[in-house]
Amino acid sequence: MEFLDTYPGTFVVQTMLHSLVAVMLSEAALVIWALESHHARFRYRTSTIILPVLLAVFFSLFFPDRNTFYFARDMALFVSRDWFALSLPGNISVGWVILILLGGGTALVFFLQELLPLFRNAFQARGGEPYPLERVDPEIERLVRDMAAELGIQPPELRILEEDMPTVFTTGARESAIVISTGLLETLSRQQLLATLAHEMAHIQRRSNFTTLLIFMVRLVTFYNPVSLLMFRRLVQDDEHVCDDITVRLSGSATALAATLRLFLQQVPERAKGMPEMKQVIMDHSHNLLLMERVSRLEEMDRLTDESFDWKLFLAIQGIVVVVCYFVI
């Protein structure tokens, strides 16, 4: 059990346990207080990723006695060490089996699905020409300026990507630009284009690129944590929903955005030949499921959710999470 006696060992085990406690209590709070706003859900789910990391540092600095035998015996609610001491036939530690299966599996998924594509994109982007700045319809530019004013942001630059595939995204964490492909420009109606631009500007207003990057950096430290993996994906989806709501508020039309999103659905073949194609099918299917969820939500939307956020409740819940986690070692 020497790994558990080291700081990295304690960090790994306790962050996994604390994030599990944080998720259970946060998700319960979301249900009990009927917090339907994705804005609220985004914040609660972000805290389930960040708080366990902060707690690991905080507890080890200010409460070193938590790791002693007598704290475990007299005060702890849960002692992970006992699970590592429990053996299966063949002298295999139950705790280690769980840690390797969950942590190792998560690390593999994180590396293959998130880190590797990130490095691949980074290498491909290097040395590439910046997207050319082209003027679009002056009327569109005026509406973009009006929407930017309403959102309280600088009007972003609009850049064109010469590509048939419908694509749109924001670039940059500090100074943002919206990149839109010629394929998408040719397909969208004026209303749909406005909805698309409004959605991207909502991301700019929310500093989505910067926030997501920050949270991703925290996730790098807890790459083994399955709870972080799941929560990150959910909060990315929540962020999209929040931006969808902002778009509806700005453009006045939920259906225009829904129609645009349908354009991004991938054609998924019925049968896959071989592993690479199977992998692509799974990814496209998953991509479509997430998009269809947003489309359905927009098409069925009869009112926007209340965006007010109860900070007192949030802090109270986090306080309770901290207290419970103190007794989990």
Binding site: V21, M24, L25, A28, A29, I32, W33, A76, L77, F78, V79, D82, W83, A85, L86, S87, V94, I317, I320, V324, F327, V328
Partner: peptide, 30 residues
């Protein structure tokens, strides 16, 4: 709602204690 949430906290706490008890009960190493 506060009562329901406190009940949830108690349930999570109880669940942790049950899972804490299992290795000691099985392994007898307590």
């Amino acid at each position: 709602r506060t009562f329901l949430f406190l009940l949830t906290v108690l349930s999570v706490t109880a669940g942790l204690m049950v899972f804490n008890w299992i290795p000691r009960a099985i392994g007898g190493r307590g």
